[in-house]
């Protein structure tokens, strides 16, 4: 730890410990635990059986108590490490418990019943990952359906966003026309209209268009993002106009100029927008919650929140499905983190 700390805190190193070095060290270590800890805890918990989840104090890794079928007993019996009166330890199966005494049998010789104080026995536990937490919701519940809905919404909305926003950005950056500044102004003004302000009338529009209880009702209101138009336009302004003139001299139609010249050159900005759009749409909650009321249409986020809000929460499934929901975003985070952080620092969007 000392070496690591010296490595981390090399700035004032050598001159002894300045108080800021200590604060830095505490803050970073604390941050590491607090920021990553919950997600890691979630990950481990998602592999525990319902019984292990109910345990208090909880163990970090997913353990299960071992059981054995013993001749003469219908149900499997739980195994314990029992301390015998003579001081030796044996693995015994518990038949029943009476008060503080436990009646146990040796699984290999089930004839004789041994009585042990419950404080003298420890359950036998083995590390085991309850993968059924993951497989069952897909088979017995609609989670596969939800997953598909989420993927569909995310992919479709992102594709439409990219096409529609880039077309608009092209018009707003490479053409002079009357009303251009008016269009820009409207977009700027509504940059800050949040869903929470317009959800009631938007709902009525969606229903009158027949899009209530339809994934398109979730997708369409999100695709004309002013933010997207903004980033793309900003980027397209840096493409020299001479290139477009050259293409016009080369007999390219305006659509070809958009498709073959401007779009390929906007690729970096399109990538940033695509990443953000994927994260936004994957994470959307309130609007899908309003538009989708039929179970088979739920997205993962809606499905999760509905299941977790039920009276009898089946935490083992919920936790596993939370992990599934988290995975795409974590992947995006791991592989595209640098892209995203510079994107945010540059544009202040989220």
């Amino acid at each position: 730890m000392g070496a690591a700390a010296r490595f981390i805190l090399r700035r004032k190193g050598g001159k002894g410990w300045h108080w800021t070095d200590i604060v830095t060290w505490v803050w970073l270590t604390g941050g590491l635990i607090i920021m990553f800890g919950p997600a890691v805890w979630l990950g481990f918990s998602s592999f525990k059986t319902p019984a292990a989840l109910a345990e208090f104090p909880p163990s970090i890794l997913p353990y299960v108590t071992s059981q054995a079928t013993v001749e003469g007993y219908d149900k499997p019996l739980q195994l314990f490490n029992a301390k015998m009166p003579d001081g030796s330890t044996r693995v015994l199966a518990e038949v029943r418990r009476i008060g503080i005494m436990s009646q146990m049998v040796d699984p290999k010789a089930p004839g004789e019943i041994v009585r042990i104080n419950i404080n003298d026995r420890q359950p036998v536990r083995t590390l085991s990952f309850a993968t059924s937490n993951y497989t069952e919701p897909f088979v017995h519940f609609d989670f596969l359906r939800y997953l598909w809905n989420s993927v569909f919404v995310t992919v479709t909305a992102t594709l439409i966003t990219l096409v529609v926003n880039s077309m608009a950005a092209f018009a707003l950056s490479k053409y002079e026309f009357r009303g251009r500044s008016a269009a820009m102004l409207i977009i700027l003004a509504t940059l800050m209209v949040p869903l929470s302000v317009i959800m009631v009338p938007l709902y009525s529009i969606i229903s009158s268009l027949g899009l209530f209880n339809s994934l398109w009702g979730v997708i369409l209101p999100t695709v004309a993002t002013p933010t997207g138009v903004f980033i793309l336009r900003q980027y397209m302004l840096t493409i020299p106009d001479e290139l477009i003139d050259a293409a016009r001299m080369d007999k390219a139609s305006e659509w070809q100029i958009y498709w073959r010249i401007v779009l390929p050159l906007t690729a970096p900005a399109l990538a940033v927008l695509a990443i953000f759009s994927v994260v936004w749409r994957w994470n959307d909650f309130l609007w899908p919650l309003i538009v989708l009321s039929r179970r088979e249409l739920y997205t993962l986020q809606v499905g999760l929140s509905i299941y977790s809000g039920e009276l009898n929460v089946q935490w083992h499934f919920i936790l596993a499905m939370t992990v599934v929901t988290m995975i795409p975003v974590v992947l995006v985070f791991i592989f595209l983190q640098r892209f995203i952080t510079t994107g945010i620092a540059g544009t202040g969007l989220k």
Partner: peptide, 27 residues
Amino acid sequence: IGGMAAFFLAPNMLIFGIFVLLPLVIN
């Protein structure tokens, strides 16, 4: 050529108008 600007702008503005501006007014 100038008219094509309207074409490129139209889809975004249409969606934008229906799902953002219109609700804002209807509200």
